[in-house]
Amino acid sequence: MRAAVLTEFGGPEVLQLREVARPLPQPGWVDVRLTCAALNWHDVLVRRGQYASPLPHVPGADGAGIRVDTGEEVMILPSLHWGRRENAPAADWQILGDHQHGTYAEFVSVPEDCLVPKPPGLSWHEAAALPLVGVTVFRALFSRGRLQAGEHLLVLGAGGGVATMAVSLAAAIGAHVSVTSSSEEKIARAVSAGADDGVLYSDPAWPEEARKLTPDARGFDLVLDSVGTWAESLRALRLGGRLVTLGASRSDVATIAVRPFYFAQHEIIGTSMGSPQDFAGLLSLLDRTAAAPPPVDRVFPLDAASEAHAHLESGTAIGKVVLDIV
């Protein structure tokens, strides 16, 4: 089968189209003939060697296609071996494309419980782009963050897949959503997608400017931080507010003052990916509300996976980057 393969770690250019063997059969696993795959920042970290993937390796967590044994149209939940507990994954949990060959290929093999019927209302591109960012954001906002209608949410980094999905889901349940961004254009796009307003994070005082967007400038009930700026995010919270953290794209070390943290009764809540139950909750929310799937920014052919990665890393994408496999 054709696949975009890593034989070494590095920049986008290390992704090369190769012929590789199809996945070997495993009990309880199912082959999927992929139609599309979607990129995530996590794939960039895999390509750079962050997760010590075995080489040669096929990256890719997100995908949608045809289940080989039944012919059913399916989406892939890339959360492998979650386990029985909902509060945290099992010890052998992993993300598809870390150590198991992923979705940048014509075929992928996954555990049967990671397959979900493709909703008829989604295009193939949307179905491929939804699972990782959708289940991650659903878990972050609702399972972990406990976001309720009427609460005020601040989403850091408007424009990325996490931010656009968070705006859509939070607005759909009646939360008030603000965003941060490096550009007025991205803020305007977030507003058109359901956000109320936003601030530029290029201003060092952005947490205080963001607080002014809440009633009486008291601060946000919840801040969704996928970039790792904990100290600034805590400044934007109200007393008793919650910080949900799910990424470290800007900083992987955080230093915070302890006394202000506990006097303010703040919470810092970690989360990553999500369970099959979270994914079921996401699909139910999409079905009963006007929440939209993640927007698709650009589509590349499989043999241009390196160009797709370069585009993702450029920071200009608004929404998801997708690979056409067939």
Rank of each mutant, 00 (worst) to 15 (best):
A129S: 13
S183K: 14
A149M: 02
G150M: 02
A175D: 10
V135S: 04
S181V: 11
V177S: 05
A158P: 08
I173A: 07
G157F: 01
I173L: 10
L156P: 14
G198S: 06
S123W: 03
H125D: 07
R139W: 00
F138A: 10
R146S: 00
L156D: 13
K212A: 15
V177Y: 00
G145R: 04
M165V: 14
A128D: 01
L169T: 15
L156A: 12
S183L: 05
P120M: 07
H152Y: 12
A188K: 15
A210C: 10
L154H: 07
I173F: 02
P131S: 05
R211P: 08
G121Q: 03
T164Q: 13
A166W: 04
K186S: 05
E184P: 08
A175R: 07
V179G: 03
A193F: 11
A172G: 09
S178I: 12
F138M: 11
T164F: 06
V133P: 04
P207I: 11
L169G: 13
R144G: 03
G145C: 01
G157A: 04
Q148F: 00
Q148P: 00
R139G: 02
V179I: 13
G157N: 02
D203I: 12
L213D: 11
A149Q: 08
L200P: 08
Y201Q: 03
K118I: 04
A129E: 01
G161K: 12
G150Y: 01
P120H: 11
L141D: 04
V179R: 08
P119S: 05
E208K: 15
L200M: 03
E185H: 14
H152L: 02
A166C: 09
P119M: 01
E208I: 15
A158M: 11
V137N: 03
G198K: 13
F138I: 12
L141M: 01
A175N: 09
P120A: 11
H176P: 03
D203P: 06
R139N: 07
D196G: 14
D197R: 15
A140W: 04
V177R: 06
G159H: 08
A193K: 13
H152W: 10
S183H: 14
M165I: 14
T180N: 01
V191K: 12
E126R: 05
A190G: 14
A171Y: 10
R146K: 09
A140D: 05
D196I: 15
E185F: 09
G159V: 12
G198E: 04
F142R: 06
S123R: 01
P117Y: 01
S202A: 15
L200R: 10
V162M: 10
M165F: 03
G121I: 02
V177Q: 04
I187N: 06
A188E: 14
L130R: 13
H152D: 10
E151D: 06
V179L: 05
A170V: 08
A128E: 09
G159R: 11
D203V: 14
A195M: 07
L147F: 00
K118C: 00
I173H: 03
P119H: 04
G159Q: 02
A195K: 08
G157P: 02
A166V: 07
G161Y: 06
S178W: 06
L169Y: 13
S183I: 12
S183F: 05
E126W: 08
T136C: 05
A158K: 13
F142D: 01
P120V: 13
G194N: 07
V177D: 02
G160K: 13
E185W: 09
A140V: 08
P204I: 05
D203K: 14
A163S: 15
L153F: 04
A175K: 10
G121L: 01
